[in-house]
Simulated scan of single mutants.
Amino acid sequence: MDLATFTLFLPACFALNMAPGPNNLLSVSNATRYGYRTSCLAGVGRLLAFAGMIALASAGLAVVLQTSEWLFYGIKILGAAYLFYLAYQLWKANPQAETQARTAEAGLLALARQEFLVAAGNPKAILIFTAFLPQFVDPAQPVTPQFALLGLLFLVLEWIAIAAYAYMGLHMRRWFARPQGKRMFNRCCAGLLSAAATVLLMARRA
């Protein structure tokens, strides 16, 4: 990758990483409920899902999603259903119980699994990798190393986005210190997750 391509890729990629979405909203919510460190560590689940998607896109397997309508819509429906489930959990969450469970290791694993499933439940993400990353690949050079480098850079920038959104959530936790405030914030996040699920249900393959 030459310097010109690199300088074009970084800002475009980081804008994609920082775009509001279900996973970034989850980082804010987790930081508000469980703390900054827990939210950042839970983001590893998202990185694993995206790494798998990048590998699929690199191998050309994402074409299956473009040609198989039932597979695309099946993944989409499952992903939206999981977002609605998370929204319901947030809506019914007990802020006092969250404070007691903040440092539980099992809770961290569950949060990482949530991040993974939210990312994996969006088939549009694989198609984004299929459409976005190849734009910065020089076909005159070996493709696999370039794709690997671009994928690695994407994951590094995604980690920065996780940290940024978690930091935002950390400050929001100070604003919603009382249980009533936490409950209100949780329900706002539940509404936004439900909206994201609705948008996902309306997504098309094109």
Rank of each mutant, 00 (worst) to 15 (best):
D2H: 08
L3C: 05
A4V: 11
L8R: 14
P11R: 06
P11L: 04
F14M: 14
F14S: 13
A19W: 02
N23R: 09
T32H: 11
T32V: 15
Y34P: 03
Y34F: 14
G35F: 06
G35N: 05
G35E: 02
G35H: 06
R37S: 10
S39R: 09
C40G: 07
A42W: 02
L48T: 10
L48V: 15
A49T: 07
A51P: 14
A51M: 11
I54Q: 01
A55V: 11
A55T: 13
S58K: 10
G60D: 01
A62S: 15
V63A: 15
Q66T: 12
T67R: 14
T67S: 14
W70G: 05
W70T: 15
L71N: 03
F72C: 07
F72W: 02
F72I: 08
G74Y: 00
I75S: 07
I75K: 02
K76P: 07
L78D: 03
G79D: 02
A80M: 08
A80H: 03
A81P: 08
A81E: 01
Y85M: 05
A87V: 10
W91K: 08
K92C: 09
A93I: 13
A93E: 13
Q96P: 06
A97G: 07
Q100G: 05
L108S: 05
L109N: 06
A110G: 13
L111W: 00
L111F: 00
A112Y: 01
R113H: 10
R113W: 11
F116Y: 09
L117H: 04
A119M: 04
A119S: 05
A120G: 04
G121F: 05
G121A: 10
N122M: 03
N122D: 09
P123F: 04
I126F: 12
I128S: 06
I128Q: 10
T130A: 14
F136K: 12
D138E: 01
D138M: 06
P139M: 00
P139T: 00
Q141D: 05
V143P: 01
V143S: 06
T144E: 14
T144S: 12
A148Y: 00
L149W: 09
L150H: 03
L150C: 06
L153Y: 05
F154Q: 12
L155D: 04
V156C: 14
L157I: 05
W159V: 15
I160P: 01
A161E: 07
I162N: 08
I162T: 13
A163V: 09
A163D: 02
A164I: 03
A166E: 05
H171P: 05
R173V: 08
W175F: 11
F176S: 08
A177K: 10
P179Y: 00
P179W: 00
K182H: 07
R183A: 15
R183F: 04
M184V: 14
M184G: 14
F185G: 09
F185C: 09
F185S: 14
C188Y: 02
C189K: 08
A190I: 09
L193I: 03
L193D: 00
S194L: 12
A196Y: 11
A196K: 01
A197P: 10
T198A: 15
L200K: 08
M202Q: 09
A203W: 00
A203E: 15
R204P: 03
R205N: 02
R205K: 10
